[in-house]
């Protein structure tokens, strides 16, 4: 039997038998080389309570070349692209070892959620948000977990993120911005979506708000 097929089948079976890790691997179609992995968001992080799905493609030369993984669920994390779900993780690239398995890789992804690496970002805007204001970043990550990964939503104790209404998707909260800031520039007559876009790009958050002049924002808005 093909060594790759044997290995993948065994890995899927192992994962099914293992009830402790909470990691699931399912087939997407009939091919055992295109899979969907999922795991719960790690406790004590903004991703807690969420359910994260990962698209897995097993390359021809697996396990000697790394498996290709990307998030299906949208994740707000410096090392995950907020648009495509692409993941920046060393073991998916040059630090891959043939001994690693789908399960161990998914566990590594789970732990990546616990320990972001903003200095080696996949998504520079998210990383900037993280370094500028960690608490604001976490609020946004919680909100994303809530709306995309079925998480419990922002905790009551935090008043800051009160702008996020649980029922409707709040674009301002998705972008990790303050409602007041958006309103300030929207009131000048710019379309709301454009204001959100520009403020997100400028990283108009935390201490940065004081550094970025209003003129600069307006200049960007006029472009």
């Amino acid at each position: 039997m093909d060594a790759r097929l044997r290995r993948v089948n065994k890995e899927i079976a192992d994962c099914k038998n293992d009830k402790t890790s909470n990691i699931k691997i399912e087939l997407i179609d009939n091919s055992p080389f295109h899979l969907k992995g999922s795991f719960p968001g790690p406790e004590g992080t903004p991703y807690e309570g969420g359910h994260f799905e990962v698209d897995i493609v097993i390359p021809e030369s697996y396990p000697f070349q790394p498996v290709k993984m990307k998030f299906i669920t949208k994740v707000y994390h410096p090392n995950v692209s907020s648009a495509s779900g692409a993941i920046c993780l060393d073991i998916l690239k040059d630090a891959w070892s043939p001994v690693l398995t789908l399960k161990s890789t998914l566990i590594s992804l789970q732990s990546l959620l616990c320990s972001p690496e903003p200095n080696d970002p996949q998504d520079a805007e998210v990383a900037k948000h993280y370094t500028t204001s960690k608490s604001s970043f976490e609020d946004t990550a919680v909100y994303w977990t809530q709306i995309y990964a079925g998480g419990p939503g922002p905790k009551e104790k935090k008043g800051k993120s009160s702008s996020a209404k649980p029922d409707e998707r709040d674009e301002v909260a998705i972008a990790g911005l303050e409602e007041a800031h958006v309103n300030q520039f929207a009131s000048l007559g710019f379309p709301r979506s454009k204001v959100i876009d520009v403020l997100r790009r400028l990283n108009y958050r935390g201490a940065n708000v004081a550094k970025i002049t209003e003129d600069r924002v307006v200049e960007e808005l006029l472009k």
């Binding site: 060594a3 000697f64 070349q65 070892s97 043939p98 690693l100």
Partner: peptide
């Protein structure tokens, strides 16, 4: 597995320093 591994490293990655397969 060693043969496949070395083959993949040499041919796909053009790597001349081939490390042990263990993580």
């Amino acid at each position: 597995c060693w043969t496949s591994y070395v083959g993949s490293k040499v041919r796909d990655e053009a790597e001349h320093c081939i490390r042990c397969m263990a993580e």
